[in-house]
Amino acid sequence: MRILLIDDSQAINEMNSYFFKKSLKDIEIETAKNGKEALAVIENPDKKLPDLILLDLKMPVFDGYDFLEYLNSIEFNYKDQLNVVLLTTSMNPEDKRRISEFKFVSNYLIKPLSISQANEIVTDYMKAMK
């Protein structure tokens, strides 16, 4: 399983990375500190598309909305296989509503991520792969 963690906090990316590595041994994790860095990973033709993207909403430079809107606007292989989970501090119902319009967003979680949530995300993915 390959996961891309996008958050402007390196400390958060490392903490979440720890949770996912605890949940699954065979896991490859990449991190990006904003949407632009994340796009460079996704658009790299030498790399396989991540199985899951954990995305923060509020980031400087290129935030979660910019990232999702850009993905929505372009055509690329396996787009229908994209699986994005939002991880944000925003409890604003308007954010939740707007995010639900992106069909490749499967979940909207409030920070902080817990180890049990990481486990659940990994388990759901493994079930879907069977």
């Binding site: 400390a11 958060i12 903490m15 902080p112």
Partner: peptide, 15 residues
């Protein structure tokens, strides 16, 4: 606003 948001989110993640 950006920085206080980041400090708050990172601090919550570390308890």
């Amino acid at each position: 606003l950006e920085l206080t948001h980041k400090i708050s989110g990172t601090s919550i993640s570390f308890g």
